[in-house]
Amino acid sequence: MGGLIYNELLVITGRWRSYIGFIGISILMPLILWGFNLGGGSINSEYTSQLGGSFIMVGSVFNSLLATYIIMNAFWIHIPFLVTLAAGDSVAADGANGVFRITLIRSTSRLKILVSKLLASYICTASLLIFCAFWSLGIGSIVLGTGDLIVIDNGILILEQGEAWLRMILGFSLAILVMCMVATLCFMFSAMVDNSVGPIVGTMFLIIIGYLVIAIPLDFFDKIEPYIFVHYFDVWLDAFKDPIPWESIGKKTSILVIHSAAFFVIAARVFIQKDIKS
């Protein structure tokens, strides 16, 4: 299996479009960090005005950890698109390019090939988020400095710097899990068709529909919300609650894993029975 995954990574890393997400992040993040560096004072003032009545603020609350938290919130809709760029190609492109006529006639089973492609997609997905973390936390720490993390959600949570880093690791780990589910959904569509655009459009369509259902305050939508996988995408935010709601994280991650497993089973069923005519 290791050899098959290595093969898939060779294919992915050899395609320039696999780097679109990384290039995008490499362009955006310096701009965002530069913007934060220039405009960080206003964010600091905003926090200070909200907290100033209750706390004595010394120095700036704005640092790479807060910037990362803000970036994660802002990027939440866009990262899935970057994830689908690699996942959408993984199966469909081989069908479109006729490569299956050479790879699927060998003694390796289709299931093994499919699993290796999925795992390679996961590696790409995780790499993308780790790259994002490298910019926002790594480079961000150099540009903006570090310190305690103040999270204002349904209250005020002040996390000491060491604890905040651990929460960031947990947050990014959960984000990777969520994005792997997105990759699996796109992968499922990729196994069904012979072009790379369809899976990307299909996945983003479902995600946007999900976001809309969650955002629109209708009773009917409220009822169906728990059955929509997008509803559990915010699991990473649980990493910044106190105490950490492990039960909620466990439930949400289980649902996401079950969704991923279901998407993969569908993909495998379609792919194994698929007639390769092209």
Partner: peptide, 30 residues
């Protein structure tokens, strides 16, 4: 299909990789 070699219509490979890399990938599979 362990002892079968086949060429189905025109041969398509990963065009962005070298011929050797393509064959090495298939050797890894086999």
């Amino acid at each position: 299909l362990g002892q079968v070699g086949a060429l189905i219509e025109k041969s398509d490979f990963y065009k962005h990789l070298s011929g050797t890399t393509n064959i090495e990938m298939l050797a890894r599979m086999d």
